[in-house]
Design a protein around this nucleic acid. Structure first.
Lengths: 194, 194
DNA sequence: CCAAATTTTCTAGCACTGCTAGTAGTGAGA
DNA sequence: TCTCACTACTAGCAGTGCTAGAAAATTTGG
């Protein structure tokens, strides 16, 4: 019994090790540098070990992305609950979202830019994913007026995502981030809400 | 003289052939299916010929993207100038942008999703790229009020881009596209403008 | 019209990728 | 101690982008 328990524990630890190594490598040199060989090297196991934990490279990226969702939720919540009013909450959440993308570009890529088969907005969506959306929705709620909250949240999220990704690819100069966010908020914030 | 002219012409034709083949293949099976071998096969030349035209695979993708910008400009312009008023123009441009992304997903990827070294918003930006932004800006202008037109256009563009890309990756259900666009427009359109 | 020079295109190969079949090694239970 | 099951390994496959050097084709000069 206990022996199997230890084995399970060790396996779980190694799985965590793989995820962490992948994330660090991606953050340091980009996802194209995360090869199964380099990853195996880094965790000091042979390549096939990776495949005993994950179905393939994509599954590893998905695991990293899930870690990211959990972290993002925390930061969004802190930004929202720490704000004095509804306008500040939306602004804070938007800024936190942008800051997260800046601080963890590779993580953000895995979460939102790559085509992974993560179920969004579905029954079997990972909990952290639903929680992240809920966090955004709570910040948007006071500004929804008569509009559908879910759809409005999606729209607001899309705007944030668009800003972040266009900046990442050099499509938009990064300097004006704050001013663009201000414009966006100006169009979404309902004065005297909440 | 004339011989060299013919050679130049033939080279240009083959270059166009490469771009078209890459685009078709990408649109049919996605960019990951566009390998130098398959591309060479398709144009009925050997692999190294590709490298006499383009620096590498990325350069081919960039060439495809440039084609896309020219087409997008045309569709945005048609949508804008065909609208009866300022609100209709913005709505039309937004719908045209979404429709373009739907109709040419691989093309859209090359233009906006991949990290290619295209100079956006710079001195040496390709003309079609500047023209595309201008087209958007003209549609946004009547709704800018006192806000900076360039920044507001960037923000609106980012929102469109966000919607389109999140839908592509399955992050947002596609059915509600129109309703999300309506919400976005509701926040950007200034009544009684232009 | 033919040989030399030049340009163009090809074959073959490099170092790498994700992934897997089959083998060697390790520890548990009888 | 012996057998068995499981784990992790080595080696290899088919594919990738890209390139060096040989072969073929074409233009030029005699």
């Amino acid at each position: 019994m206990s022996i199997q328990a230890r084995r399970r524990r060790e396996r779980a630890e190694r799985e965590k090790l793989i995820i962490t190594a992948a994330r660090e490598l991606a953050e340091a040199e980009g996802w194209e540098a995360v090869t199964t060989r380099r990853l195996a090297d880094r965790i000091e196991y042979s390549q096939p070990v990776l495949y005993s934990h994950f179905k393939g490279k994509d599954a590893i990226m998905t695991a990293v992305a899930l870690e990211g969702f959990a972290e993002l939720v925390g930061e969004l919540r802190a930004a929202r609950t720490g704000a004095p009013d509804a306008a500040g909450a939306l602004a804070g959440v938007a800024a936190a979202y942008g800051a997260f993308a800046d601080r963890h570009p590779a993580l953000y890529d895995a979460m939102f830019r790559r085509d992974l088969d993560l179920a969004f907005a579905a029954e079997d969506s990972p909990a952290a994913l639903k929680a992240g959306f809920e966090e955004l929705a709570e910040a948007v709620r006071p500004h929804a007026g008569g509009d559908d909250l879910g759809l409005l949240t999606e729209t607001f999220w899309a705007a944030l995502h668009g800003l972040v990704t266009l900046e990442r690819g050099g499509r938009l100069p990064r300097e004006a981030r704050e001013r663009r966010l201000a414009l966006l908020l100006g169009r979404f914030v309902r004065d005297g809400a909440g």
